[in-house]
Design a protein around this nucleic acid. Structure first.
Lengths: 278, 278
DNA sequence: CGCGCGGTTGACAATGATCAAAAAAGGTGG
DNA sequence: CCACCTTTTTTGATCATTGTCAACCGCGCG
């Protein structure tokens, strides 16, 4: 999915506040990583908090992996710039998600983590990761869990990209995004996308024009109400149906993919989806 | 990428040897996880070793995540079965790679790990993961590193699937596969694919017919010698060129993608590729 | 020997990438 | 507040790529 139009890699001229030790952020960090029991016991290592504004990066592809980051507020995209300058979005991260853990393997970050808006992140020095379990067992456990979640998301990402139809890809993306919103306690129906069409396109492995088209297609069928980056899910059942991407039967050949997806999805799937509870 | 032809999920009738504690496997496990310094210090937790033959699974999607697995020998595929029965291959794992770590997040495995041939794996009980750092620091560190590697691979996977041209996808897959072979000390030029065309297709998000076509295409151009699952890389430079998937310029429109990829790749990229050393 | 399976190849329709341009949104300065 | 610029998004038109269907081949196995 190379698009030469995208050939100007972002220049990181934006302001990056120098990281500072922040005692008050201790409990926060643990809570952010959604460890249920965040005991405020004293730890010898108050976390670093980094503040960046839109377009700035907390770590760079190829740079020594000195820390792993946890999103505290805002949103990030993790990208790799390919040889021809195309910016491949590998993942999106919001509150509670880990970025840069993949840098531990070789000691170099393999992605650049760029803020999509004014954001903050915790920085966990990789040096201190070895001793973390003894110094702060709860955090260690929470971090493990968060990394596991990254792997889950990676699998889902593959699942999104691998889908045949472009509407299916977008539908899966939206379902995923809505679930994440629900997990953060936000509305799973009224979504505010933190990223542009081009970034969604790069993430899903398609042309940005096709992303746009898929949005309008779903909107035309009454599944979504799209207002730029504000997306409202009008018909969750249809969206899920579309995300399931069932192949058309031979006899249904003439019909439209989206129309076909309108038939109700499996009840089991629906029940476990937060959208349906709302 | 749904293919109804693939709608018969594997029946797991194959033999699975009951796991057994194996004292002798202690050092092995550490070495397998490629920790440089594997001290043979006594640990209170001799690893479990599981033996499976082709088609059998070490863990199932949806089952309680009681252990994380590390491949000791052989090869595995990690799959998710979608609602319509299509088997999506999420990852391939060979010696030293971690499977099922994504199960920690929810306590349930999200993939089924199926052996592609007669294989063995270590099972690390998730219960013991909390105390692992104190009981066996080296292993903990090695495991962290291996998990990090999984994340790196996940990013590369996305990179493979997201590529536009089918030959590019396959080329990236082969480059990745060759690098892994090299890391395991095997030849990076003579590859034995452990998986079938259909599994490659599912992994790369394309139709199996297209995978087959891409193989023959690369073979016709002298890049590969393909004999079923035995693939020899005849022209590494061309393969890398193809994997870089540079878009054709406007004037080169008439030429064939593979032919265009024949031009030499960036020296920096080549130097760091194990193929070129051989 | 026939059967089934995995792989290859052919033909065809259609999806989506690409090129291109218009329209909308956001930001800046008068 | 409006004109003006840039960026993002939408929409249009065209054509190659690839998914789909289907036939065929080679191989191992019962």
């Amino acid at each position: 999915m190379y698009k030469p139009e995208n050939a100007n890699p972002q220049r990181f001229t934006s302001y990056v506040a120098p990281p500072q030790r922040d005692d008050a952020a201790q409990v926060e960090l643990l809570q952010t990583l959604r460890a249920a029991e965040a005991r405020g016991s004293a730890t010898p290592c108050p976390p670093l908090v980094v503040r960046v504004n839109e377009g700035a990066a907390v770590h760079f592809e190829g740079a020594r992996a000195e820390s792993v980051h946890v999103v505290r507020s805002g949103a990030f995209k993790c990208v790799r710039v390919l040889e021809d300058g195309y910016e491949q979005v590998v993942s999106f991260a919001e509150r509670g998600e880990v970025m840069g853990y993949d840098g531990l393997y070789r000691g170099e970050h393999v992605t650049t983590a760029i803020a999509l808006e004014e954001s903050t992140a915790y920085a966990l020095p990789t040096r201190e990761l070895d001793t973390l379990p003894v110094r702060w067992p709860e955090l260690d456990r929470a971090l493990r869990c968060a990394v596991s979640r990254e792997l889950v998301d990676a699998g889902r990402t593959a699942n999104m990209i691998a889908a045949v139809a472009s509407e299916t890809r977008l539908a899966r993306f939206l379902v995923w995004y809505a679930e994440r919103a629900a997990e953060r306690g936000e509305s799973p129906r009224r979504l505010r996308l933190r990223m542009g069409r081009r970034e969604i396109a790069s993430f899903l492995g398609m042309a940005h024009a096709t992303v746009s088209r898929s949005f309008t297609l779903l909107a035309d069928h009454g599944v979504l109400a799209v207002d730029n980056r504000d997306v409202e899910i009008l018909d969750p059942v249809a969206l899920i149906g579309c995300s399931r991407g069932t192949r058309r039967g031979v006899d249904e050949r003439a019909q439209h993919p989206v129309a076909l997806a309108m038939r109700p999805a499996a009840p089991a799937l629906l029940r476990q989806w937060p959208l349906m509870a709302a």
